[in-house]
Design a protein around this nucleic acid. Structure first.
Lengths: 128, 128
DNA sequence: AGCATTTAGTTTCCATTGGATACCTGGTTC
DNA sequence: GAACCAGGTATCCAATGGAAACTAAATGCT
């Protein structure tokens, strides 16, 4: 178990790595982090860029990312107040890890679509 | 928009890549896929290895992974029936993409814990 | 005979989460 | 003084997640 403590074991429910995995293996985290990694981005800019992302979830996700030290929040005393979210070095290293995920989805979407169609066909055949 | 169709744009809610991202950017998918990638595994073996994973969610996740062509399901007419889930080539390529995620969590858990502690301290100070 | 056990699920129920929408604050422009 | 940005909260309902009970079929134990 010392071994687990040293390395972390995400298969264990109460391990820190499991909690981290739960946070980072998330659709919105992947998308937001990849944008912010490119350049500092304002709250509403993020909301506009990520289609389907509600204000509430964006707010929660950003708060969580900030707490985890993955992004920083910077409020500027302009009028109206603008708030910019920027990547941290830790966040940048995660973004690099996450980027292949989006690329994989893009590269293999046709194969997945084919697999789904084949599966659904088999189901239909069985049912008939 | 042809560009989007050719490459996929996960920032668009209705894009196939977004739906794929939603499926694969998931705690259970990461954990299950990484086990099955190692060797074919039975239903209950998965449930026992992944702490906190309920039968319902395991069943749903496996069905989804099978439909997406990432794992195959093989039922053996033993008694009681045993069912083995095995990785496909497509699933193996995803597992390779996902593995760095768990490794990242393991490698940076201390930094995240520190960031959280610092953040909570700042919050406490502000509140006080 | 009859009951527990095993496998792989499904079903049921309740708590948590997600998403849509409305609202708030504060200053500016028209 | 009404309308309009920004960056959020508050509220409500639907969907999801998880715990636990239940199913089926066959075998072993008593």
């Amino acid at each position: 178990m010392l071994h687990d403590h040293a390395e972390g074991n995400p298969y264990q429910a109460n391990c820190p790595t499991r909690r981290i995995l739960d946070r980072i293996a998330d659709k919105w985290t992947v998308l937001i982090l990849s944008i912010v990694a490119g350049q500092p981005t304002r709250f509403n800019a993020l909301r506009r860029q990520v289609d389907g992302l509600s204000q509430k979830v964006l707010s929660q996700t950003l708060k969580s990312l900030e707490r985890d030290g993955l992004v920083t929040r910077h409020a500027f005393a302009t009028v109206p107040v603008t708030v910019e979210y920027a990547i941290t070095p830790l966040g940048a290293s995660l973004a690099e890890t996450l980027a292949p995920l989006a690329r994989w989805a893009s590269a293999h979407m046709d194969e997945i679509a084919d697999a789904q169609a084949a599966f659904d066909q088999r189901c239909a055949d069985t049912a008939a």
